[in-house]
Design a protein around this nucleic acid. Structure first.
Length: 191
DNA sequence: CCCTGATTCGC
DNA sequence: GCGAATCAGG
Protein backbone atom coordinates (compact mmCIF):
# COMPACT_ATOMS: atom_id res chain seq x y z
CA UNK A 1 0.00 0.00 0.00
CA UNK A 2 1.15 3.49 -0.67
CA UNK A 3 0.42 6.82 0.84
CA UNK A 4 -2.09 8.20 -1.58
CA UNK A 5 -3.41 11.67 -0.98
CA UNK A 6 -6.60 10.10 0.18
CA UNK A 7 -4.94 7.86 2.72
CA UNK A 8 -2.82 10.71 3.97
CA UNK A 9 -5.95 12.70 4.57
CA UNK A 10 -7.49 9.93 6.59
CA UNK A 11 -4.27 9.70 8.52
CA UNK A 12 -4.30 13.40 9.30
CA UNK A 13 -7.91 13.25 10.32
CA UNK A 14 -7.62 10.27 12.61
CA UNK A 15 -4.37 11.47 14.08
CA UNK A 16 -5.89 14.83 14.91
CA UNK A 17 -8.80 13.04 16.49
CA UNK A 18 -6.46 11.41 18.90
CA UNK A 19 -6.43 7.85 17.66
CA UNK A 20 -3.28 5.92 18.35
CA UNK A 21 -0.93 4.92 15.58
CA UNK A 22 -1.97 1.31 15.76
CA UNK A 23 -5.63 2.19 15.60
CA UNK A 24 -5.02 4.32 12.56
CA UNK A 25 -2.97 1.58 10.97
CA UNK A 26 -5.83 -0.82 11.54
CA UNK A 27 -8.29 1.58 9.99
CA UNK A 28 -6.20 2.25 6.95
CA UNK A 29 -5.17 -1.30 6.54
CA UNK A 30 -2.08 -2.44 4.72
CA UNK A 31 0.28 -0.56 6.96
CA UNK A 32 1.87 -1.12 10.32
CA UNK A 33 1.70 1.28 13.20
CA UNK A 34 5.34 1.99 12.57
CA UNK A 35 4.49 3.05 9.07
CA UNK A 36 1.87 5.38 10.46
CA UNK A 37 4.22 6.85 12.99
CA UNK A 38 6.90 7.28 10.39
CA UNK A 39 4.49 9.04 8.11
CA UNK A 40 3.22 11.23 10.89
CA UNK A 41 6.73 12.39 11.55
CA UNK A 42 7.50 13.00 7.93
CA UNK A 43 4.39 15.08 7.71
CA UNK A 44 5.50 16.81 10.86
CA UNK A 45 2.23 16.04 12.54
CA UNK A 46 3.75 15.07 15.83
CA UNK A 47 2.36 16.24 19.08
CA UNK A 48 -1.36 16.46 19.08
CA UNK A 49 -3.24 17.28 22.17
CA UNK A 50 -1.04 15.68 24.74
CA UNK A 51 1.92 13.89 23.36
CA UNK A 52 3.47 11.74 25.93
CA UNK A 53 7.06 10.92 25.76
CA UNK A 54 9.55 13.30 24.27
CA UNK A 55 12.54 12.34 26.29
CA UNK A 56 15.70 12.46 24.21
CA UNK A 57 17.39 9.22 23.37
CA UNK A 58 20.39 8.68 25.50
CA UNK A 59 22.11 5.80 23.87
CA UNK A 60 24.20 5.55 20.77
CA UNK A 61 22.90 8.67 19.13
CA UNK A 62 23.16 12.28 20.05
CA UNK A 63 19.84 13.50 21.37
CA UNK A 64 17.84 15.46 18.88
CA UNK A 65 17.63 19.22 19.25
CA UNK A 66 14.19 18.56 20.58
CA UNK A 67 12.35 21.29 18.81
CA UNK A 68 9.28 19.19 19.22
CA UNK A 69 6.92 19.22 22.13
CA UNK A 70 5.83 22.75 21.45
CA UNK A 71 2.84 22.80 19.21
CA UNK A 72 2.48 26.34 17.95
CA UNK A 73 -0.88 27.21 16.49
CA UNK A 74 -3.22 24.79 18.07
CA UNK A 75 -6.68 25.64 16.84
CA UNK A 76 -9.42 24.62 19.15
CA UNK A 77 -9.30 21.10 17.91
CA UNK A 78 -11.70 18.63 19.39
CA UNK A 79 -10.50 17.40 22.75
CA UNK A 80 -8.81 14.10 22.78
CA UNK A 81 -11.48 11.50 22.44
CA UNK A 82 -12.63 10.27 25.80
CA UNK A 83 -12.89 6.85 24.23
CA UNK A 84 -13.95 4.51 26.92
CA UNK A 85 -10.83 2.66 27.82
CA UNK A 86 -10.78 -0.74 29.38
CA UNK A 87 -13.23 -0.26 32.12
CA UNK A 88 -15.66 -2.43 33.91
CA UNK A 89 -19.04 -1.92 35.32
CA UNK A 90 -19.84 -3.86 38.36
CA UNK A 91 -23.41 -4.84 38.73
CA UNK A 92 -24.87 -6.66 41.60
CA UNK A 93 -26.81 -9.46 39.97
CA UNK A 94 -30.36 -8.25 40.29
CA UNK A 95 -32.73 -10.56 42.01
CA UNK A 96 -35.35 -9.32 39.64
CA UNK A 97 -34.64 -8.60 36.01
CA UNK A 98 -34.60 -4.89 36.48
CA UNK A 99 -31.44 -3.72 34.88
CA UNK A 100 -32.12 -0.33 33.52
CA UNK A 101 -28.86 1.45 33.79
CA UNK A 102 -27.52 2.56 30.45
CA UNK A 103 -24.11 4.01 30.07
CA UNK A 104 -23.28 4.53 26.46
CA UNK A 105 -21.81 1.42 24.93
CA UNK A 106 -22.79 -0.53 27.97
CA UNK A 107 -26.44 -0.33 27.02
CA UNK A 108 -26.23 -3.22 24.63
CA UNK A 109 -24.56 -5.52 27.10
CA UNK A 110 -26.97 -4.50 29.79
CA UNK A 111 -29.82 -5.77 27.72
CA UNK A 112 -28.22 -9.15 27.58
CA UNK A 113 -28.02 -9.25 31.30
CA UNK A 114 -31.72 -8.63 31.55
CA UNK A 115 -32.43 -11.35 29.02
CA UNK A 116 -30.40 -14.03 30.66
CA UNK A 117 -31.84 -13.09 33.99
CA UNK A 118 -35.30 -13.74 32.67
CA UNK A 119 -34.45 -16.85 30.71
CA UNK A 120 -32.40 -18.48 33.42
CA UNK A 121 -33.87 -17.52 36.75
CA UNK A 122 -32.51 -20.70 38.24
CA UNK A 123 -28.85 -20.21 37.88
CA UNK A 124 -26.04 -18.96 39.98
CA UNK A 125 -27.60 -17.43 43.09
CA UNK A 126 -26.18 -13.97 43.03
CA UNK A 127 -22.64 -13.57 41.91
CA UNK A 128 -21.26 -10.35 40.63
CA UNK A 129 -21.36 -9.88 36.93
CA UNK A 130 -18.53 -8.08 35.31
CA UNK A 131 -19.59 -6.55 32.09
CA UNK A 132 -16.79 -5.42 29.84
CA UNK A 133 -17.12 -2.24 27.89
CA UNK A 134 -15.92 -2.66 24.39
CA UNK A 135 -12.42 -1.53 23.68
CA UNK A 136 -13.63 -0.87 20.19
CA UNK A 137 -11.03 -2.87 18.42
CA UNK A 138 -11.21 -3.21 14.68
CA UNK A 139 -10.66 -6.52 12.98
CA UNK A 140 -6.99 -5.93 12.42
CA UNK A 141 -6.41 -5.03 16.01
CA UNK A 142 -7.60 -8.31 17.37
CA UNK A 143 -4.93 -10.52 18.83
CA UNK A 144 -5.08 -14.02 20.15
CA UNK A 145 -6.00 -12.75 23.55
CA UNK A 146 -8.69 -10.25 22.72
CA UNK A 147 -12.37 -11.00 22.80
CA UNK A 148 -13.71 -11.36 19.30
CA UNK A 149 -17.32 -10.69 20.16
CA UNK A 150 -18.65 -8.42 17.42
CA UNK A 151 -20.59 -5.30 18.30
CA UNK A 152 -22.60 -3.13 16.00
CA UNK A 153 -23.46 -3.28 12.36
CA UNK A 154 -20.68 -4.90 10.31
CA UNK A 155 -21.54 -2.57 7.47
CA UNK A 156 -21.12 0.45 9.66
CA UNK A 157 -17.93 2.34 10.29
CA UNK A 158 -18.75 1.99 13.94
CA UNK A 159 -18.44 -1.75 13.85
CA UNK A 160 -15.91 -3.14 16.25
CA UNK A 161 -15.12 -5.98 18.56
CA UNK A 162 -15.30 -6.27 22.30
CA UNK A 163 -11.55 -6.60 22.56
CA UNK A 164 -11.44 -7.52 26.19
CA UNK A 165 -9.12 -10.08 27.70
CA UNK A 166 -10.05 -13.49 26.39
CA UNK A 167 -7.46 -15.77 27.78
CA UNK A 168 -5.80 -18.45 25.71
CA UNK A 169 -8.55 -20.99 25.61
CA UNK A 170 -11.47 -18.90 24.48
CA UNK A 171 -11.94 -16.49 21.63
CA UNK A 172 -14.15 -14.45 23.91
CA UNK A 173 -13.81 -12.71 27.20
CA UNK A 174 -15.38 -14.37 30.22
CA UNK A 175 -18.59 -12.49 29.83
CA UNK A 176 -19.11 -13.06 26.12
CA UNK A 177 -18.02 -16.67 26.45
CA UNK A 178 -21.02 -17.18 28.69
CA UNK A 179 -23.26 -15.70 26.07
CA UNK A 180 -21.68 -17.71 23.31
CA UNK A 181 -21.58 -21.03 25.06
CA UNK A 182 -24.81 -21.14 26.92
CA UNK A 183 -25.27 -24.40 28.73
CA UNK A 184 -27.86 -26.52 27.00
CA UNK A 185 -27.05 -30.04 28.00
CA UNK A 186 -25.55 -29.06 31.27
CA UNK A 187 -28.54 -26.97 32.22
CA UNK A 188 -29.91 -29.59 34.54
CA UNK A 189 -27.29 -29.01 37.13
CA UNK A 190 -28.24 -30.37 40.49
CA UNK A 191 -27.42 -28.14 43.34
C1' DC B 1 3.08 -8.55 28.74
C1' DC B 2 0.13 -5.23 26.86
C1' DC B 3 0.41 -0.82 24.86
C1' DT B 4 2.23 4.13 23.38
C1' DG B 5 5.14 7.34 20.38
C1' DA B 6 10.25 8.48 18.83
C1' DT B 7 14.21 7.63 16.30
C1' DT B 8 17.50 5.52 13.21
C1' DC B 9 18.95 3.89 9.03
C1' DG B 10 19.02 0.51 5.11
C1' DC B 11 16.33 0.23 1.31
C1' DG C 1 10.05 8.67 1.10
C1' DC C 2 9.27 4.46 3.42
C1' DG C 3 8.92 1.49 7.46
C1' DA C 4 11.20 -2.48 10.35
C1' DA C 5 13.90 -2.53 14.14
C1' DT C 6 14.74 -0.60 18.09
C1' DC C 7 14.35 2.31 21.97
C1' DA C 8 12.01 4.58 25.95
C1' DG C 9 8.21 4.89 28.62
C1' DG C 10 3.22 3.88 30.79
Amino acid sequence: MSWTDERVEVLKKLWSEGLSASQIAAQLGGVSRNAVIGKVHRLKLSGRGKTTTAAPRSKKVAPAPSVTASAPPRPATPPVTPAATAAHIHVQAPVRPTVTKTVGAAALQMEYVADTAIAEPVMKPASDVVIPISRKLTLLQLTERTCKWPLGDPLSEEFHFCGHESGESSPYCAYHAKLAYQPSSERRRAR
